[in-house]
Structure formats: C-alpha cells, structure tokens
Simulated assay, not measured.
Amino acid sequence: MRLLFIGDIVGRTGRSALVNTLPDLRRRWNLDFVVVNGENAAGGFGITESICDEFLAAGADCVTLGNHAWDQREALVFIERQPRMIRPANYPAGTPGRGANLFEAKNGARVLVMNVMGRIFMDPLDDPFAAVERELEACPMGQMCDAVIVDVHAETTSEKYAMGHFCDGRATLVIGTHTHAPTADAQILPGGTAYQSDAGMTGDYDSVIGMNKTEPLQRFTRRISSGRFEPAEGAATLCGIAVEADATGRAIKVAPVRLGGRLAEAVPSFW
C-alpha cells in the first residue's frame, strides 16, 4: 500500500501548491491513500468548508486539523457533516466532529486515521496517549483495519517521539505536524512504524513558519504588535512523507517529500 501524508497547508500559496501538484502525484506514484493537514489553510488560521472540499477534490482522502481547528467558526458546524475531516481526538467529550475515522483506500484497504494534539507548550487537552490507545484498541491494525495513520500535532519532538514508540508495531505511520519545519529523521521504528518528527509545512519558506516576515520580526525585536499575522505569498514548497506498507500494515519503505519552492527537492526513490 502506498501512502502519502502532506504537512500543514499554509494560506493561499500552500493551497495552490497542493491543488496543482496532488492530482499528478496520485497518478504518477499510484497512491492508494493521501492525508493532508489543513488547519492553517484559510489565511493561515483554520479551514473553511470550501477549502476542505477543494482538497478532497484534488485527491486528498482525509484532512486532519490541530490547534487552529476552530479559528474559522464555520468548522464547528460543517465538521459534523464531513466525515473526512478529523480534529484532535483528545478534545473534551462533546466537541463537534470526530478524532478518528476508518476510510477505504483506492486499493480497497481499510485505513484508520486519527489526529491528536500534544500538551507540552500547547492547550491542556485530555491525555493524547490515552486517546490513541482507545482508538487502537477499538480498531486494531491487522484485524479491524489494514493500516493506521496518526497525526500528532505537537510542539516538542520529545512528545512526538514518545508517541511514535508508543504506537510502534500498532500503526503504519506516526507523523508530527505543527512546527512547520521538516525534520531529517524519517525512519522506520523497530516494530515497523514509519516516523518523522515533523512533516513540514506546505507554504512559502521565505517566511517565519509560513507568515510574512514583517510582523513576526516586529514582535520578536520590539515586543510590540503592529498588526495581524498574514501568510507569506511566495512560491510554496509542498512537504510531506511517503510510506510503503506491506500486507500487515507495517512500513517497509519511508522517505521525505519536498517539491517546489525554496527547499531542496526530495522524492521517494522507491516509486
């Protein structure tokens, strides 16, 4: 099974990179399943229903979120009728939407996707490890599903690594999001789970994590806010991770993906 995860889409330039690139990637790489993190897609903050629909039409099978899930208030409503959009599973009981869902891949495989948010330097939500354990017990890989993808939206690499080892052998991919910088640690853990601390963002890297440089620099150097953050609008680099899994759902190949924009290109050599 061929899986692709694409990191945080930031603003208009990130959306354009995804929509213009993903259909061709699905065809050329013969992808079975694609997950996109879309929590920064609408002007850098949240996602709208029309943007979610645009991503799904371009070839995404599922859209995950994070700490900006509700920045566009309409998301609280349309997430209830959009089963292919997943918010963090460790939000409190009663939060709209779902934190995990089971999908059918192009090859007929059953793929469980879940999204959790870290707690270090983040909002103090429920325990992400308990939330993941609950979903893994309810839908174990090799029994109720053929592959498992866990999007860990977190600030620290330590918390993400801990989640990777916690899921090792029980998930196909544990992928970090949120920090918007692709890490160089794509690997397969001993139990067969592919892991990378951060997929990176899909946005303009001539920026401060996707935002126009002027306002972040003003706040860092003078501690004064002079306006709101706005997404940078230069050419975007599409960033993510490619995984090939065997019949058991365990990863056998993994590679970072970087296409376009300012970063050095990286593509999987095995496809």
Rank of each mutant, 00 (worst) to 15 (best):
V77E: 15
M114N: 11
T237V: 10
I188R: 06
F5A: 12
G142K: 01
T177E: 08
L22P: 00
D206A: 15
A232E: 08
L3D: 06
N101Y: 12
D127H: 02
P182F: 11
R84Q: 07
K106A: 15
A162R: 14
L136M: 11
G59V: 05
F166Y: 15
L125G: 02
F121R: 04
V113G: 11
A17S: 12
N90Q: 09
V152S: 00
L136T: 01
H153E: 11
R73E: 13
N40K: 07
V243Q: 08
E215F: 11
N37S: 05
V174R: 01
V10T: 14
A184R: 14
L217F: 15
E39Y: 07
I6E: 09
F229N: 09
A75D: 04
T183E: 13
P190Y: 04
L4T: 00
A255L: 06
C145T: 02
R28K: 14
A186V: 03
A199G: 07
E104G: 14
A199D: 03
T156H: 10
I9V: 15
R81K: 09
D146K: 01
A75L: 15
A266W: 07
I9K: 01
V132A: 14
C139L: 09
Y91P: 09
P83A: 05
M211Y: 14
R27A: 15
G46L: 10
F55D: 01
V257H: 12
P256I: 05
M163K: 07
G176Y: 14
H165T: 03
C145N: 04
T172W: 02
G200K: 10
D32E: 10
M141E: 03
Y91F: 15
Q72N: 06
L25S: 03
G97W: 00
G99D: 01
G203R: 13
D32S: 14
G14F: 03
E215N: 09
T177K: 10
A242F: 13
I47S: 03
G227N: 09
R170V: 03
R222N: 02
P268L: 09
P124L: 13
A154W: 11
K253Q: 13
L173C: 10
A138S: 12
G46R: 13
L65E: 08
V267K: 08
T177M: 13
V243H: 08
L18H: 01
A130R: 10
E104S: 14
M122W: 05
D126K: 01
D146Y: 00
K213S: 13
D24P: 03
V132N: 08
A109N: 15
A236S: 06
N30M: 12
L189K: 05
R87W: 00
M141L: 04
A245D: 09
M85H: 05
G108L: 10
N40L: 04
R15A: 07
